[in-house]
Amino acid sequence: ENVVSAPMPGKVLRVLVRVGDRVRVGQGLLVLEAMKMENEIPSPRDGVVKRILVKEGEIVDTGQPKIELG
């Protein structure tokens, strides 16, 4: 899985990584606000952040790609 998608609709509060960052499985990639709760979205695997496809403040839909890992 190279693309991390939104598990639920919500607002991107914070992006916790930058392009080029090495990430580990379970590491937080971003914080999504859904139903007035903050949810940290974890990396599904070890890898390197290739692209960030969302911006802080953006509203995302379920299944929308957010971060691409290499």
Rank of each mutant, 00 (worst) to 15 (best):
1 E>I: 14
2 N>I: 15
2 N>M: 14
2 N>Q: 11
3 V>L: 13
3 V>F: 15
3 V>E: 06
3 V>Y: 14
4 V>F: 04
4 V>R: 03
5 S>E: 08
5 S>V: 14
6 A>G: 06
6 A>S: 13
6 A>D: 04
7 P>Q: 12
8 M>H: 12
8 M>T: 09
8 M>F: 15
9 P>D: 06
10 G>D: 02
10 G>F: 00
11 K>G: 03
11 K>H: 04
12 V>M: 01
13 L>V: 12
14 R>N: 07
14 R>G: 06
14 R>S: 06
14 R>T: 06
15 V>M: 06
15 V>W: 04
17 V>L: 00
18 R>C: 12
18 R>D: 11
19 V>L: 09
19 V>C: 09
19 V>A: 07
19 V>I: 11
20 G>K: 03
20 G>T: 03
20 G>Y: 03
21 D>W: 04
22 R>C: 14
23 V>T: 02
23 V>Q: 01
24 R>V: 14
24 R>D: 07
24 R>C: 13
24 R>Y: 13
24 R>G: 09
26 G>F: 05
26 G>V: 04
27 Q>G: 04
27 Q>C: 07
28 G>K: 09
29 L>Y: 00
29 L>D: 01
29 L>H: 01
30 L>T: 04
30 L>G: 01
31 V>I: 14
31 V>N: 00
31 V>T: 06
32 L>Y: 09
33 E>Y: 14
34 A>Y: 15
34 A>N: 12
34 A>F: 15
35 M>W: 09
35 M>A: 11
36 K>C: 15
37 M>L: 11
39 N>Y: 15
39 N>D: 05
39 N>H: 15
40 E>K: 08
40 E>T: 15
40 E>H: 10
41 I>V: 09
41 I>R: 00
41 I>K: 00
41 I>P: 03
43 S>P: 01
43 S>H: 02
44 P>Q: 05
45 R>I: 15
45 R>N: 08
45 R>A: 11
45 R>T: 10
46 D>A: 11
47 G>E: 01
47 G>A: 10
47 G>H: 02
47 G>S: 05
48 V>I: 13
49 V>I: 12
50 K>M: 11
51 R>G: 07
51 R>D: 06
52 I>W: 00
53 L>F: 14
53 L>Q: 03
54 V>T: 05
54 V>Q: 01
54 V>N: 02
55 K>R: 12
55 K>I: 11
55 K>G: 08
56 E>Y: 06
57 G>N: 08
57 G>P: 01
57 G>M: 06
57 G>Y: 04
58 E>V: 05
60 V>T: 11
61 D>V: 15
61 D>S: 14
62 T>M: 14
62 T>P: 11
63 G>L: 08
64 Q>R: 07
64 Q>I: 07
65 P>D: 08
65 P>A: 12
66 K>V: 15
67 I>R: 01
67 I>F: 08
68 E>N: 04
69 L>H: 00
69 L>C: 04
70 G>R: 13
